[in-house]
Design a protein around this nucleic acid. Sequence first.
DNA 1: CCTAAGCTGGACCGTCCAGTCCAATGAGTG
DNA 2: CACTCATTGGACTGGACGGTCCAGCTTAGG
Lengths: 202, 202
Amino acid sequence: MEKKLTAKGMATRNRIIAGAAEVVRETGVSLVTLDDVMAHTRASKSQLFHYFPKGKDELLLAIAQHEADQVLEDQKPYLGQLDSWDAWRKWRDLVIERYEKQGDRCPLGSLFLHVGRATPGARAIVVEMLRQWQESLAVGIRSMQAAGLLPEDVDVERRSAALLTSIQGGVAILQATGQSAHLRAALDQSIEDLRRSAVAQP
Amino acid sequence: MEKKLTAKGMATRNRIIAGAAEVVRETGVSLVTLDDVMAHTRASKSQLFHYFPKGKDELLLAIAQHEADQVLEDQKPYLGQLDSWDAWRKWRDLVIERYEKQGDRCPLGSLFLHVGRATPGARAIVVEMLRQWQESLAVGIRSMQAAGLLPEDVDVERRSAALLTSIQGGVAILQATGQSAHLRAALDQSIEDLRRSAVAQP
DNA sequence: CCTAAGCTGGACCGTCCAGTCCAATGAGTG
DNA sequence: CACTCATTGGACTGGACGGTCCAGCTTAGG
């Protein structure tokens, strides 16, 4: 699977991925062409196929990985410190701000949708990326438990899954309609309910 | 905007929409071609452009409308009777069963995504369809209030928005990964939290 | 150096596909 | 019957786009 890449090769490959990711964000997965990517990265077609022999699908998968890493990276300082309700609020603000700024531009969701439907192998990778994302949310919930701010019997698995689903759904609706109201509502409701579970115990 | 259509014309138009909707469900929005639709509906290309002069986009929008009507129609007997927790459970089962059976086939979500990004006019229609869907959920919550099973101060707007978002997110993840776990988790969590709000009041 | 490898440019190909055009047919109306 | 307009079939077009090929250049390393 792995090819020999010199430092220069790696640099080019990364340049292509980063540039292509931008193009995808601007244009949307379903509309991006290799020519767009070429124009935006100043790479020739042979370069594209040199670094991504399986063609467009392979490139898109690489972009999806890059974007997923980016998302986790961005949220890491917040996600790693979810040990107070105030921290949750800050994280919520970050998520909403991020996606509102991106507007109806194409983030991870559409990429996942597109890539996940391509091949079983790609789907497995998408599953793994979502799992990581969800796990980082789960860690946040567990640290609330550790801080004594949430009871031990919270179903961490289900809460984190529901939270991730709310984000994905909210973003999907944001893309389809251009409105972030649903993303806000779903996130706020999820967090409020989580918070309420702290006091609803006997 | 409206053209003159004889009864025969209407029949043909409807046949095209219904058949094309099937094709979209099987093939996925982004992969459907007009030739597919032609083969599946036994219509000629001139018929397609006769009934949908603006071409593929207009056809897809009509399909989205058709599918949205279908979804609301399917759920109407359940949504109209959400006046007990048992009814909510039955509705939940229906939703999950429906989407699990469709599997990773392309339902409304992707259509909305695709159509909504096409033109502002189409986007407005998508917004309206989502609003209707959400409203029917809101009606369910209100009937629970009317039955005295939910307190009056429930934020119906936000609850229904969050519920709709959970469904959309769950379906998006189902399509990307082939797994319905997130849909289940999000729906169950949403309903459980709603239910809990009934007893968490002072 | 030299030579084998990675790297790059860009012309080229084959296919797919939305959309156009026109001629032929059918049905409603005077 | 004649006239009109909706309806239908299907060949054709023009362009977009993924992917191939090869020839020329760099770079690593002996």
